[in-house]
Design a protein around this nucleic acid. Sequence first.
DNA 1: TTAGGGTTAG
Length: 441
Amino acid sequence: MLFKKLVKQKLCEPNVVMYNTMIKGLCKFSNNVTAVALLRLMEQTNCKPSIVTYNTIIDSLCKDKLIDDAFKLFKEMLFEKGILPNVITYTSLIRGLCNLGRWDEASKLLKEMEDDNISPDVQTFSVLVDAFCKEGKVEEAEAVINIMIERGKVPNIVTYNSLIDGYCLRGEMIKAREIFDSMTLRGLAPSVVTYSSLLNGYCKNLNIEKAVQMFHEMSGKGLKPNVVTYNTMIQGFFLVGRCVAARRLFDEMYAQGQIPNECTYRIVLEGFCKNRQVEEALSLFHLVGDGKLNSDIAVYNILINGAGKYGKVDIAKNLFHDLIDKGLQPDVHTYTVMISGFCQEGLLGEAKLLFLKMDESGCPPDDVTYCVLLQGYLKNRHYDDVEMLLQEMDDRGYSLDASTLSLFIDDIAAGLLDRSMLKLLGKLVPKELLNDPSLCD
DNA sequence: TTAGGGTTAG
């Protein structure tokens, strides 16, 4: 690295800001290893890492879900270097914990920061609001907002955008719209993100007309729809089966200067597949040809799934071989959709072979893979391996999903299962399904 | 020079 060389030859004496800027650049591309290497380099010079240096790397680690590494650095900073954390350090760590669903630790850390006399600021509260909303816990999010107001902090546009998402997730669109309108009353102008969030809510709740209305309204307000807005809208059209409108918007993006990204591409391919237009998806896939977009395992997973679902298992198989020839690594989704395709066609032998290959390839089946294969066996009245699979699931600590369980219940009712199987089944029913009335009729 | 929001496979 040129930078390192210059430093060693003392041709350049970087100051803390220069180091921090370099580290920020590395972190932007998730190059945490090099960022830490640079931190170590700083330690050998007169220019010691500062709180900014640590915060930058800790935040990047948290974003990449490397929370344990983040805490290691946090402790090193505190106990070895004697640098005290500030509100930014705590906010990053709390967000990292929330993103992983580690709520107890997050709330412990929040308490710890208050004990250290560091008060949470608007951004800290917003992190909590966002975390609750992503789980649909809008009551809790509203409670956090009330606490922040009590403490004299003013919720900002980001806080409300999260709240809109929360209500959209719950399908409470009237409430979402109310929040949107209340922002204007508070003197906060909805941004492209705000519009896109509400638009996404309308799309997900199948109110495409309202979504289209928002799309036009934002342009009228001088806000330019960006790639995310287009992606959301395209997905919305596909969701209600309006493939032509979706495709038209996809073609229109370029004209508006919004270049489709890999996310757009996946949305379009999946949209066609889900609407039984696998040929359309495949023709776009072939049109795009070899390149970055088609070197994405997720793209193959979508197409294999689409082909497998609609009786084109040969195409699915070809795609599977194609991706391996390209040097791509099948992941647990790839195997699962391929197995599902085989099961769909009653090709249980091929399904089983592939299933067995997973552990060998270092990609063990997950709970979904087991459920897919079990469903294949049950639907084809092929009970030989069912008990063995159930036993393996129990060993691995997996449980059954609702749709697989209901197939089992049908077979129990028909008297097709023996006692030992029933006992095993009982162990694999997840707690949250035990009182599900839809499974008892 | 350090932290927050919207789209993304079974």
